[in-house]
């Protein structure tokens, strides 16, 4: 079923809902930082404990992730030795696969794990709030992330291409933020978390069909090992 009300300047894609609806405005939660979507390179929080998860704009997220990994690697919690990265990520991948294919798709690219929260289990229809099923999945995910704590977890929101890009970016960012906050509330260190609103920039499928658009509306969780790249020989396959 599709409910489309064209009004205002933004047409918002509701990721992972299976239904698109019009949202009056983006209203950050009361405790949220001002959205940093506009700033291409957000400053790293200087405070001892950042009040909320850092949000990165649609561009420059790769550099932001790289920078945050280096910061964490230099931090007190330490980093993974280059020789351990393979084992660490292998075991973590196996652990995450136990969540089940119908809840999370796990893809490994090099040292990075990309988790896609499966369509239909994300949010209430037309809203931001996570469904019970999604919360259960994310709670288990948080457990694994607590155990495998030498990783950076970036939550990427994606939308389809219907409507304006800026609004889509904002909406996808809000969805990702919701996920990241849930993980933080479940014990994942906020400094390990980054939120990226990619809007329609990384489509998985054609936006011409409803099926394709539905695939494009999604939240991905990228898990990168905390290591100093280049400091030691790269992991041999």
């Amino acid at each position: 079923m599709r409910v489309c009300i064209g009004a205002g300047v933004v047409a918002l894609a509701i990721a992972m809902s299976g239904c698109r609806g019009r949202i009056p405005a983006v209203t950050p939660p009361a405790n949220a930082e001002p959205p940093a979507a506009a700033s291409p390179a957000p400053a790293a929080p200087a405070a001892p404990a950042p009040p909320d998860v850092t949000v990165v704009g649609p561009d420059g997220h790769a550099e932001a992730i790289e920078r945050r990994v280096l910061e964490l690697a230099a931090g007190a919690k330490g980093r993974l030795a280059a020789d351990d990265v393979g084992y660490y990520m292998d075991v973590q991948q196996a652990r995450l696969q136990r969540l089940g294919k119908d809840r999370v798709r796990v893809v490994r690219t090099g040292a990075r794990l990309v988790l896609t929260l499966v369509t239909g289990s994300g949010y209430d229809s037309g809203g931001f709030r996570l469904t019970k099923e999604a919360e259960a999945t994310l709670a288990e995910l948080a457990g694994t992330l607590r155990e495998f704590n030498k990783t950076l977890v970036s939550v990427h929101g994606h939308s389809d291409a219907s409507g304006g890009q800026a609004a889509n970016v904002t909406l996808s960012e809000r969805r990702a933020l919701e996920v990241a906050r849930f993980l933080a509330e479940n014990g994942v260190d906020r400094r390990r978390l980054l939120v990226v609103g990619r809007g329609p920039l990384d489509p998985l499928a054609s936006n011409e069909t409803e099926e394709g658009r539905e695939r494009n509306r999604r939240v991905e969780v990228h898990i990168d090992p905390i290591q100093i790249r280049g400091a030691s020989p790269p992991r041999t396959p």
């Binding site: 292998d90 991948q93 696969q97 490994r108 041999t236």
Partner: peptide, 11 residues
């Protein structure tokens, strides 16, 4: 070991 030979869907 730095690289698993098999990571089964079952975990």
């Amino acid at each position: 070991p730095p690289k698993a030979d098999r990571i089964y869907p079952s975990g």
